[in-house]
């Protein structure tokens, strides 16, 4: 594959993780445990959907096959999605939602830090903007992990259960993907080794404050979101998210 295609692939990974996270957060609309939390989740989701659009716009230009950002979001199938497995997991209770977001934010922040200095001006522009937003996201989700972990017996139990349930998917935040490593060498993409190191350090620090036990590093298993090998949950999420544009093609407001 050419570097142009590799780059488009990488942009889809960034966009898909942001979009799927945003879609999951929007599922809380009208049913969050408190009004302030509802506002926060919708704000974070909106930021991420806006960022996804930035990545898709650029990916669409590189792919140059007639598809625009909307087509990339709404007309691709499950196997074409490149998001991290963790972001497609169901929201569960507030501990699971919080922890999913925290693991993603702890990966997203160092990724954007690097991308804001990408050799590609367009990438640096989208990332520079997103970085300011991601700092707030990370701050919020880490505060919640600490509050739940170092809270009541029940909140501690719930977030500990969430760690057990989600930990296996964190392999994707720390493994070294060859395509990303190659792109990082040319200064285009975030260096996966740097991101992994940052992710581990941030998670360890917050877990300690949250009085949570840090599990052994996750190990690879048979699924891989970067290759389009997803859990069953993504298909259901896409069915809901893509229903309208597929049922009513070219519908407008």
């Amino acid at each position: 594959m050419s570097q142009r295609n590799d780059l488009a692939e990488y942009l889809l990974r960034l966009g898909d993780s942001a979009l799927v996270t945003g879609q999951r957060l929007c599922e809380w609309c009208g049913r969050a445990p408190a009004l302030e939390e509802e506002l926060a989740l919708m704000n974070v989701g909106l930021d991420l959907i806006g960022q996804a659009r930035g990545w898709y716009d650029y990916a669409a230009e590189l792919l140059d096959d007639g598809r625009n950002a909307d087509a990339l979001a709404f007309k691709r199938e499950e196997r074409d999605f490149r998001n991290l497995l963790i972001v497609e997991q169901p929201n569960g209770d507030y501990a699971i939602t919080t922890l999913k977001l925290f693991f993603y934010d702890a990966w997203h922040l160092p990724t954007l830090e690097q991308l804001s200095e990408s050799s590609d001006e367009r990438i640096a522009g989208v990332a520079g903007k997103a970085l300011k937003e991601a700092r707030y996201h990370f701050k919020r989700s880490s505060e919640w992990v600490i509050r739940l972990g170092d809270g009541t017996d029940e909140s501690h139990r719930r977030i500990s259960d969430a760690v057990d349930r989600l930990w296996r998917y964190t392999i994707e935040m720390v493994n070294i993907d060859p395509l990303e490593q190659e792109l990082a060498k040319t200064g285009l993409a975030a260096d996966p080794a740097f991101v992994a190191e940052q992710w581990q350090a941030r998670v360890a620090k917050v877990f300690e404050e949250a009085t949570l036990k840090l599990p052994e590093p996750a190990v690879p298993f048979y699924l891989n979101g970067r290759q389009g090998l997803h859990t069953e949950h993504l298909g259901q999420l896409l069915a809901e998210m893509q229903f309208l544009p597929r049922a009513y093609p070219d519908a407008t407001w």
């Binding site: 302030e36 939390e37 506002l39 926060a40 704000n43 974070v44 909106l46 930021d47 937003e133 707030y136 701050k139 919020r140």
Partner: peptide, 13 residues
């Protein structure tokens, strides 16, 4: 601070 996120993306409560 009540919440870092308010009624619009640019505001906190």
């Amino acid at each position: 601070v009540v919440s870092q996120f308010g009624s619009t993306a640019c505001k906190a409560l």
